[in-house]
Amino acid sequence: MQKTPVFVLLAVGLMLSLSCRFNPDMQTLGTDYLQGEWQQDSISMEKQLVNYSLYHFKFSCDSFFVSVQSFSKTNPGADTCYKSGHWAEYAKGDYYQKSDTLHLKGLFCNADMSYKEPGGCFRSGVYEEEFVIGKKTDSLIQFNPTSSVIPLELRLIKKSTCIPKPL
């Protein structure tokens, strides 16, 4: 009878120790072919569109920084924010690729990568986006957003190598 409680305690302790993990103290390597800076120069038929955005991504190990330049022929709000139909938003965070889908999750931030306080102009808080990766070469890649029908054709402007940093 004495062995049963000890065995149960050992089993529960083993299950708890296997289910809990500390967060890593270093960045992980991320996806090798994405490392570097990728620029979207234009989109097809942009002159016919009322609104569109152009993206600039920086991937470093398992982290990303994205700059989204948006353009609008209509006035979406106060001109102090939307600068006559052209404005920028920024986000940073972590990413991972599962099968053919790239998952980005982070926070909206300022251009200098500092945290963006809620309120004011544009979006704040959590940034979350998924892209299905289409055709790719060493210097060109296509991201198909799951939230839009307009694909992003990105060209590599600067290749880099992951050097993990402490977190």
Score class of each variant (00 low, 15 high):
2 Q>M: 11
9 L>A: 14
9 L>D: 02
9 L>S: 11
12 V>A: 10
14 L>Q: 09
16 L>G: 12
17 S>Y: 09
17 S>W: 06
24 P>R: 06
25 D>N: 11
26 M>A: 07
28 T>A: 08
29 L>D: 05
30 G>M: 00
31 T>G: 00
31 T>Y: 04
33 Y>C: 00
36 G>W: 04
37 E>T: 07
41 D>M: 03
43 I>L: 03
44 S>V: 15
44 S>L: 08
46 E>T: 12
47 K>S: 10
47 K>P: 00
48 Q>L: 10
48 Q>C: 06
48 Q>D: 07
50 V>I: 14
53 S>C: 09
53 S>M: 03
54 L>M: 02
54 L>V: 10
55 Y>Q: 13
55 Y>M: 14
56 H>Q: 09
57 F>E: 01
60 S>P: 01
61 C>E: 02
62 D>M: 02
64 F>E: 01
65 F>A: 08
67 S>E: 11
69 Q>V: 11
71 F>A: 03
72 S>R: 05
72 S>M: 08
73 K>S: 07
74 T>P: 01
75 N>F: 08
78 A>L: 11
80 T>K: 14
82 Y>E: 05
83 K>R: 14
91 A>V: 09
92 K>G: 04
98 K>I: 11
98 K>W: 07
104 L>D: 02
104 L>C: 05
104 L>I: 08
109 C>P: 02
116 K>A: 01
116 K>T: 03
116 K>M: 04
117 E>L: 13
117 E>M: 12
120 G>K: 09
121 C>Y: 04
122 F>I: 12
123 R>M: 06
124 S>Q: 01
124 S>G: 06
127 Y>P: 02
127 Y>K: 05
128 E>L: 04
130 E>V: 07
130 E>C: 04
131 F>H: 09
132 V>P: 01
134 G>Y: 08
134 G>E: 01
136 K>E: 06
136 K>L: 03
137 T>Q: 01
137 T>F: 06
137 T>V: 04
141 I>M: 11
141 I>W: 01
144 N>I: 14
149 V>P: 02
150 I>E: 12
152 L>G: 03
153 E>Q: 14
153 E>D: 09
154 L>E: 03
155 R>V: 08
157 I>W: 00
157 I>G: 04
160 S>W: 07
160 S>T: 12
160 S>C: 02
162 C>P: 00
162 C>E: 00
163 I>K: 15
164 P>A: 05
165 K>M: 09
166 P>D: 05
167 L>R: 15
